[in-house]
Amino acid sequence: MWNWLKKWYHKLGSPRYFYEITGAWLPWVWPLAVLTLGAGLVWGLAFAPPDYQQGNSYRIIFIHVPAASAALLGYVAMGVAGLVALVWRMKMAEIMIKAIAPFGATLAAIALITGAIWGKPTWGTWWVWDARLTSMLILLFLYLGVIALQNAITDPRQAGRAAGLLAVVGVINVVIVKYSVQWWNSLHQGSTIRMTEESTMPPEMLTPLLISMAGFYLLFACIVLVNARSEVLWRERRANWVRRELSNVL
């Protein structure tokens, strides 16, 4: 099992193998992503019961929580890719960092915007310096830093490794930010207001939330893979296999 995994990892490091295998996956993953996301959101919007305190405004949570968790997971994935890019100098890892960053930042922005919109009817104000919202804002800044650095360096391999290093440092930082912001929040805000209390969430709300979460992850994966495939083609544009690949479709 371990040897098989190791072999597969090395194979995935080859841009050509990555391009071919993800080409076979995508026709399955795309419909799955659309179905899951659609099912989760429709269930959450129309079929889940309203919250006894917040009424129907809580239905925003079916986007807010999945977007926030996918944004966080995406940043961690970027950090792992960054480590691989730094230590083994794997080309595919550099490509993955570039593919993850834009949609990860979008998800963080979605989490912030939906959080603010949810806050207006619930807390009576668009923005509260709540620990989770603040951490998410810092996460968005971290994403923007990686994108800015990536864009500032012209050589793609150098840009990939620089962004990788920043992502690794950022992941360590994310953990510290989370605890420091919680500490800071407990200091400045007597009553802690929670966005969600997952543990007390009844199953008829939790199920659509989990489905929607799976949908966001799958959509994230699809977009990352397609962007990574475009980047593979572009970086390997002089290779024969790319030329052949593209002439076949004509």
């Binding site: 925003i60 979605i110 009817p121």
Partner: peptide, 12 residues
Amino acid sequence: HGFYVWTAYGVS
């Protein structure tokens, strides 16, 4: 709460 819910979904 329609305004809030649909704005959130629309923007996303």
